[in-house]
């Protein structure tokens, strides 16, 4: 089940990237709107940034469960 979910996600993610090349942004506002599949790039960068933020936060904000006791 877990492996199936994992590969399903990765497969769909990979398949979704070429689709972006066929879609035209109707109301491009920012410069990045014209880059094909930019949302996919956002997804990867965003997830990476958040995992990085976790590592930073963990270093000073995570304490033992009895910290306030």
């Amino acid at each position: 089940m877990r492996k199936m979910l994992k590969w399903l996600f990765i497969l769909l993610a990979v398949l979704s990237i070429p689709v972006g090349f066929f879609i035209k942004h109707e109301h491009a506002v920012f410069f990045w709107d014209k880059i094909p599949s930019i949302e996919a790039i956002f997804g990867v960068i965003g997830a990476f940034l958040l995992i990085l933020a976790t590592a930073i936060l963990t270093s000073f904000a995570q304490k033992k469960e009895d910290f306030y006791d």
């Binding site: 949302e39 990867v44 965003g46 995992i51 033992k64 910290f67």
Partner: peptide
């Protein structure tokens, strides 16, 4: 796309996202 790529990243970093018996300040 945003969600699927986030999902793919999750499976790659799954070990770093597990819970730990700690609290956050």
């Amino acid at each position: 796309q945003l969600l699927l790529l986030t999902g793919a990243a999750f499976w790659l970093y799954i070990d770093k996202l597990g819970g730990e018996p700690k609290i956050s300040v």
